[in-house]
Structure formats: structure tokens, C-alpha cells
């Protein structure tokens, strides 16, 4: 019993320490962000690396998620005789929930792991120490541009995911299942509100972008400089980001509904 309590206390203390360190790290990133914006070239590179390079997985996933929504939407709504509402169903699902959340989960798997392993390997191969010895702060030069690049990329990727998802839903619902084309779009238009739905989804993807990018660079920067340490940091990035995104999703939804 005593051992159990001791283990629980150790785990809780370690969690609080890591949580505190990550919040201080985030604070430092936010403080350094204005100066980093003065070097847009570095940020554009990272938007390309985290955003543009994730486009394929985002578009393919968005297409299939949208197609499934089309199938499920028509099947479910036809039971109530309102299958023409599938456009609204797919639009609201994608804009408010699936777009930001699935994009964030895919971002953690594609760009988050790339960020964590890249920075972790830079530490393991003394590249970060080398920078410090050249009087270049690796947080300013390496970490902050990657963080900002991730934060910018996430809402853009979520928008692409949503747009492609709607296209997928349209293809299945209208072309395959025979829902009226006009009904599909015309029901969506008045029922999707710009502020309540679109801005809410954008806010979510922005918050997820901050969380996913921060966790990826934090794990990479604090990785133990060995092959095992970098691997563990990469895994932790995906696991922690996924949990944090789902928790944040619930909190944002609860506060904004």
C-alpha cells in the first residue's frame, strides 16, 4: 500500500513537473513569436514543411471521411424522410467537429512526429549544442519558426479537409445515392452560420494548432539524445497530442455551445 501511494505520488509529481515545464515552454515560445515574425522566410519554410507536405494525407482522409458522411447521412436521414438534409449534416459535422479534430489528429501523426523527431535528432547529433556555441539560440532559430509554421498550417489544413470532405459527401450523396443537387447545397447554405459554426471550427483548429505544434516541439526539444529517446519523444507526441486535442475539443464545444 505504501509503495502504491509512493508510486502514485511520484507519477503525479512527474506529471505536474512536465505540465509546468510545457506551460513555461509555451510562454517562452509566445514571447519570442513577435520577433520571429520579422524573419518570414523561416516561417514560410515551416508552413511548407508542416502544411504543404501534409496536404496529401489531409485531402485523401478528408475525401473518405466526407464520403462516409454522405453514405451514413443518406442512410440515417432517409429513415426520417429527410435525406435532402445530408448537405447540412455533412457541412455541420465537418466544419464544427470532424474538420478541426481529424485534421489535428492527422497533423500529430504526420507533421507532429516529423517536428519532434527532427528536433530530437538535432539534439542527439549536437546540432542544437553547436548552435548554442555559435551564440544562436536554438529556441529562437529552430523551435519558434516550427511552432508558428504549425499554428498557421493547422487552420489552413482543416479548411482543406473540410472542403474536400464536402466534395466527398457531395459525390456520394448526389452522384451515387441520387440526392438532389440543389437541395444538397441550398439546405446547407442557410443552416451553416458563419460565426457560430465556421468561426467556431476555425477557433478550434487554431487552438489545436497551438497545442499540437507546442507539444511536438516541446517533446523534440526535451528528447533524451539517444535513438530510443527520440523514438519515445515521437511516440509521446502522437499520444499526448491526441488526448489533448480530444479534451480541448470537449472543453471548447462545451463553452461555445
Amino acid at each position: 500500500m505504501k509503495d502504491l501511494l509512493s508510486d502514485a505520488w511520484f507519477t503525479a509529481r512527474e506529471f505536474l513537473q512536465t505540465f509546468g515545464a510545457s506551460q513555461l515552454f509555451l510562454l517562452r515560445l509566445l514571447m519570442l513569436t513577435p520577433r520571429a515574425l520579422l524573419r518570414p522566410g523561416l516561417i514560410v519554410q515551416q508552413v511548407y514543411a508542416t502544411g504543404a507536405m501534409s496536404l496529401v494525407i489531409i485531402m485523401v482522409s478528408g475525401l473518405f471521411v466526407g464520403m462516409v458522411l454522405g453514405l451514413q447521412g443518406v442512410d440515417t436521414l432517409s429513415r426520417f424522410g429527410s435525406e435532402e438534409a445530408v448537405g447540412t449534416f455533412a457541412g455541420l459535422s465537418l466544419i464544427k467537429e470532424l474538420g478541426p479534430v481529424v485534421t489535428a489528429l492527422l497533423f500529430a501523426g504526420r507533421a507532429g512526429t516529423a517536428l519532434a523527431s527532427e528536433i530530437g535528432l538535432m539534439r542527439a547529433t549536437d546540432q542544437l549544442s553547436g548552435m548554442e556555441m555559435m551564440a544562436v539560440d536554438p529556441i529562437k532559430r529552430i523551435v519558434v519558426p516550427r511552432f508558428i509554421g504549425g499554428v498557421i498550417s493547422m487552420p489552413l489544413l482543416a479548411s482543406v479537409f473540410t472542403a474536400v470532405g464536402l466534395f466527398g459527401a457531395y459525390c456520394v450523396a448526389v452522384i451515387v445515392m441520387g440526392v438532389d443537387k440543389g437541395e444538397f447545397w441550398s439546405q446547407m447554405q442557410p443552416n451553416v452560420d458563419l460565426v457560430r459554426d465556421v468561426l467556431n471550427g476555425t477557433l478550434k483548429s487554431f487552438v489545436f494548432g497551438v497545442a499540437a505544434s507546442m507539444l511536438a516541439v516541446f517533446e523534440g526539444y526535451n528528447a533524451i539524445p539517444t535513438a530510443e529517446g527520440v523514438g519515445r519523444a515521437t511516440t509521446r507526441t502522437v499520444v499526448i497530442t491526441s488526448i489533448v486535442v480530444l479534451v480541448l475539443d470537449f472543453m471548447i464545444t462545451a463553452f461555445t455551445l
Binding site: 538535432m122 547529433t125 549536437d126 546540432q127 549544442s129 553547436g130 548552435m131 548554442e132 556555441m133 555559435m134 551564440a135
Partner: peptide, 16 residues
């Protein structure tokens, strides 16, 4: 001070 020092690491530590 480090701007006035140069250091060669064991593995070179070149930016890959």
C-alpha cells in the same frame, strides 16, 4: 562571449 569562440564537436554537428 561565444561569438568569440569556435567549437568543433566530435561529430562535426553540421546542420543536416
Amino acid at each position: 562571449l561565444r561569438k568569440d569562440m569556435g567549437m568543433l564537436f566530435q561529430n562535426g554537428a553540421l546542420l543536416t
